[in-house]
Each structure stands twice: as C-alpha cells, then as structure tokens.
C-alpha cells in the first residue's frame, strides 16, 4: 500500500459552492492497474480504517492500466510531435486527469476550517509502498 497526503488545500466558504471535485491531474497509467481510496483530513488513515463518513472517507477511483511494456525499446516512451503537421493520435500512455466528486464528504466537514488535506491509499497487485499512484498535481474544484 502507498499512502500519500497532500499539503493543505484551501476550501472556499460552503455558501459559495454546490459541488466539489478532486482532480488528480496527470495520472500515469503505464504500470499495473490500481485503486485509490481517498480520505479528507485523515493523514493516519490506513487499510484498516473504515470507509465511512465518520472517518471522512470521500470515495475511490480505479485505474485500468496497461501493465508491462511489451514492445521494442522506446515503445512506451511518449514521443513529442515531430512537426506542427503531426496529426497522429496521442500516445496511449499520455497521462490523464481523474476526477472524484467529494461534495458530500466535504460538506460534512466543519465549515470554518478553510482548508483540508487529502490522504490517498493506493493499492495494486504488487503491493508497492510507493509508485502506485503517480500524478502531477491535485486540484480542488468547486462549482457554484
């Protein structure tokens, strides 16, 4: 299991939003498939922590990934376009953005905190302690 906890993320006053999403930007999916379970303000959460509202559990995301690279050398390297006229489809291993709606979990927190931390528990078949979830940045998106 890999555990990752974010820095504090600012949360606008609840009166300003109706929906909240966590967006994991630039998720890499070139390894084994994996699942993440997400908790808010619970940096000590582990695999034994009940996935309940009381434990500030926000939900899960599963990533159907590619597994080992099967091609020749360079097959799984993401190439740059070779010219402005390069209309080939994007490489299958281009990182993607994964969204988890956390409206209910965020609404259940006290409104005066002004910020949250996000703790992610990530699991795959190999039970890695790190490197299961690799992504560029995490954004909290709220919608009026």
């Amino acid at each position: 299991m890999q555990r990752w906890t974010s820095q504090a993320i600012a949360v606008p006053p609840r009166s300003n939003w109706q929906r909240a999403d966590l967006e994991f930007e630039g998720v890499e999916h070139d390894g084994p498939s994996f699942v993440i379970h997400v908790f808010l303000n619970h940096p000590d959460a582990d695999e034994a922590t009940p996935r309940t509202a009381e434990q500030r559990y926000a939900g899960y995301l599963t990533v159907f990934a590619h597994g080992d690279c099967w091609g020749d050398v360079g097959h799984c390297d993401i190439p740059e376009p070779v010219s402005p006229f390069d209309q080939r489809p994007s490489h299958p291993l281009e990182p993607f953005d994964a969204t988890l709606e956390i409206t209910e979990a965020l609404q259940a927190l006290p409104d005066d905190a002004g910020e949250i931390t996000v703790t992610v528990l990530a699991f795959n078949q190999t039970d890695d302690a790190d490197g299961v979830l690799r992504f560029k940045q995490l954004t909290l998106l709220t919608y009026a």
Binding site: P32, S33, T62, F64
Partner: peptide, 25 residues
Amino acid sequence: SQRIWSVHDTLHVWVGGTMGQVDWA
C-alpha cells in the same frame, strides 16, 4: 463519460487477470 469509465475501470480491475490489463483485456 467520466463516471461510466470510472466504473468500467473498476470492473476490469476487479475481474483481474488479463481482463485487468489494457493490453490483453
């Protein structure tokens, strides 16, 4: 699309084996 691909991913990974890998599913 995002919501249905999310549960799609989960089913693939739950079935596991070759179904759990994009390259062989």
